[in-house]
Nucleic acid binder design. Structure first.
Lengths: 211, 211, 211, 211
DNA sequence: AATGAATGAGGCTTCATTCAT
DNA sequence: TATGAATGAAGCCTCATTCAT
C-alpha cells in the first residue's frame, strides 16, 4: 500500500479518465468512476492532479499528442499532394478505429465555454497543422498544381474541416449516425471507398490538375 | 407576480435556457441561472416543463426549427447549383450572426453519449437536408454539370460537413479561433470573401463545370 | 366566478381535506389535491382557513364532533351496563363502516409531536368520555354489579383503550390487518361475533356479575 | 473527519433517525436534522443507506427487534398465566421508559397508507405474538383456568390491544395525556399500581379463575 | 369573491475534494 | 505514500402560500 503508482498505473488513470471524459463530458465524468476503472483510489488521483480540471487538461494534452502523432505518421513532405492527402485521410481512419476516445476528447474540448482557454488550446492544436497545410498548398500553387485563386489559408481551412468531420464521423455517435444517413450504410462502412471519394472531393476542391 | 407568463416570458425562458445549455452543456446548465436570466422563479419552469430534460428537449426542438427555417430561407429548387450553394453559405453566415446559440445548441446535441437518442435526433435533423442535397447533386449530375464519378451521398456529406464546420466557426468559441488561425484574422472577419472562397471550393469539389 | 362558496362546497372542502389528511398525514397531504377533489381553487381555501394547519384543525374538530355524535347515539344513562357497552361497541362498528376517515383522522392527531397541542386536544376529546365512563363504573360499583377493587378511572381507561383499538381495527390499514392476524379472517369479518366477544371480555374485565 | 464511522456513530445515526422519524413521521423528518443530531455529515448517511426510505426501514427493523427482545425478556412458557401477564405488563413499562422512541416508531408504522407495506409489516410484527398469546390462552382453556367460551384469537387480540395502548400511553404525548385524564395523575404516575389494575382487568377479562 | 399561475424556501441527493489512517 | 470514507456545497425539484385578474 505504500508503493508509488507505477508508470503503467499512472498511464491507466489518464486512459480511463480520457474515456470517461470523452464519453460523458467534463461535468458528467465522475472521479470515482475513473478511479475505479483505473484500479486506484480517488485520493491518489489528487496526488498527481490538483483537481478535476487539471486531470482533464492532462487528458487533453495526451489526446493532442496522439492526434499529432497520428498526423505525423501520415506526414512526409516528399510525397505528392494526392499522396499526402490520401495518407492523411487513411491515417485518420486508422487512428479513429484504434483510439476513438482521443477524437471524442477533441470534440469535448470544442464545447468549452471559456474563451481564454479555447483560444489557448486552438493555438496549440491548430497552429501547426494550419501552417503545414497552408505551406503545402502554397507550394502546390507555385508548382501550378492547384487553383491559384484559392486563398491558401482558406484552402487549408476547408481541407481540415473535412478531416475534422471525418474524425467525428468515426468516433462520435451522433456523427456516425449522420454519416450513415448521408452516405448510406454501405458506403459509410467502407473506409476505403469513402476515403477515395473524399480524396477526390478534396483534390477537386483545391482545383488539383495532374501534371 | 403575473397572472400568467406572457408569451414573451415563455419565449424568454426557452431563449435563456437555450443560451445556458448551449454554453454550459446539459449537465453544466443550472435551472436557477436560467430562471434568474429569464426573470422568473424556478418553480414556474416546472409548470411548463416536467423536468430539466424536458426543458432541454424543448430548446433542442426550437433550435432545430430555427435551423430548418434558416435552411429553407436559402431554399429555392429553381436556383442554379452555384446560386443555391451561394445562398446556403450566405444564409448560414447570417443565421449564425443572428442566433449563434442555436448552432451552439446543435453542437451540444452531438456530444450526447446516448446512442438511441443520438440516432433519433440525427434522423430528424439530418435526413431532410441529406435528401435535398443528394437530390440536387443527382440532378446536376444528370445535367452533366458536375462530376459523375462522385457518389451523390458522399458529395452531400462532404458539402454538409463543410457547412456544419462553417456553423461552428461562426458560433463556437473554439472553432472561431480555429478559423482565425487557418484563414488569418482578416479573411475570417470578411464573411463575403470567405463565403466566396468556400463556394468556389465546394463547386470545385463537386467537379462543377459551367454550361 | 363571483359567487360565494355554497355551504355544500365548504363542507366538501372539509370532507375532502379530512380524507386527504387521514390518508396521507399532515405533511403528506397536498393542498392542491384537496382543492381539486373538492372542486374549488387553492386560493379560496385560504379565504376560509389561514393556512394548512388551520384547515387541519378544522378537520380535526369536525372529526371530533362526529366521534362525539357517534358516541351519544349509543348513549342512554338509563341502559343497563351490559346494554350500554353493547351499544357503544355496536355504534363504533357502524360509525367506522360509515366514516372511516374520521377515525383515521383521530389516529393522525395522536401522532402530533407538539406537546401543548396534544394536551389541549386530549382534554377536549377525552375528558367527556372519561368522565362518563368513570361515572358509569362508579355507579355500577355502588350497585354491587362490578368489581369494587377496580379503580374507576383505570377501568374506564382500559375500556376506552379497547374501544379505541376497535376504531383503529376498523379504519386503519395496519390495524385491520393486525385484527385479521389475531382473530382470523372469519371472525374479523363478522362484526356481530367479534362485538359479542368484546362485550364479554369487557364485562368480565370489569368483574360484572348479573343481579 | 474520521477514517470510518465507528460502530457507535453508526448506531447513533439510527438512534437519532429513529427519534426524528418517531417524532415527526416519515415525511416530516429531515435528513439534515438527523445528520446534525448524530454529529455526522449528510453525505455519509448515503454511504450506509441508499435513500431516506432505506434509512427509515432500518429504523423500523431496529425498533421491531427491540420490541421483540423486550417481549422475549418477559417470556417464559413455564410461568403461570397471571405471572406471564404480570411480566409482560411490567416489561412493557420498563421498555417504554427506556426506549420510548421505538414504541413511537411502531405508532408511525401504523399510519402508513401503503396497504401492501402495512400488510407485510403487520405480518412480521404481529404474527409471532399473536400465535404465542393464542397458544397460551388455548392452553389455559384446556386446563380450565379461563373462560372456555372466549375465542382464543379474540382473547389474544383484546389482550394485545390493551398492551399496545399501554405502549402508546407510555411513549406518545397524546396517549400519555389521555392516560392522565382517565386515570388521574397519581395513578398514571404509578407504574406499579396501574400495572396491577391492568393485570387484574385482563385476568378478569379472560375469565381467569385460580385453581 | 374565486381563480390558479407564480413564487421561493426548503428538502433530498450527488459528487468533487479532503484527510485520518 | 495510497486509501477510501467523510465532508458539505450545490443542484434539482416540490409545494404551501400569495396575489393579479
Amino acid at each position: 500500500m505504500l508503493k508509488k503508482l507505477t508508470e503503467d498505473q499512472q498511464a491507466l488513470i489518464i486512459e480511463q479518465a480520457t474515456c470517461e471524459f470523452a464519453e460523458k463530458g467534463y461535468k458528467g465524468a465522475g472521479l470515482s468512476t475513473i478511479a475505479k476503472n483505473a484500479g486506484v483510489s480517488v485520493g491518489v488521483i489528487y496526488k498527481y492532479y490538483a483537481d478535476k480540471e487539471e486531470l482533464f487538461h492532462a487528458c487533453v494534452s495526451k489526446s493532442i499528442d496522439y492526434l499529432d502523432e497520428a498526423l505525423s505518421r501520415a506526414g512526409g513532405e516528399d510525397k505528392s499532394l494526392p499522396d499526402m492527402i490520401r495518407a492523411l485521410v487513411n491515417q485518420t481512419q486508422v487512428a479513429c478505429r484504434e483510439r476513438p476516445e482521443y477524437f471524442r476528447m477533441y470534440h469535448q474540448i470544442t464545447t468549452s465555454d471559456d474563451a481564454e482557454q479555447a483560444k489557448e488550446l486552438a493555438e496549440i492544436i491548430e497552429r501547426p497543422s494550419a501552417k503545414a497545410y497552408k505551406d503545402a498548398i502554397r507550394r502546390a500553387q507555385k508548382e501550378g498544381l492547384i487553383d491559384g485563386q484559392l486563398d491558401a489559408g482558406a484552402g487549408a481551412f476547408f481541407f481540415d474541416n473535412l478531416m475534422m468531420m471525418l474524425h467525428y464521423a468515426y468516433s462520435c455517435t451522433y456523427y456516425t449516425e449522420r454519416m450513415s444517413i448521408y452516405c448510406g450504410k454501405k458506403l459509410a462502412a467502407s473506409e476505403k471507398k469513402l476515403g477515395e471519394q473524399m480524396v477526390r472531393f478534396i483534390l477537386n476542391g483545391l482545383g488539383y490538375k495532374e501534371r
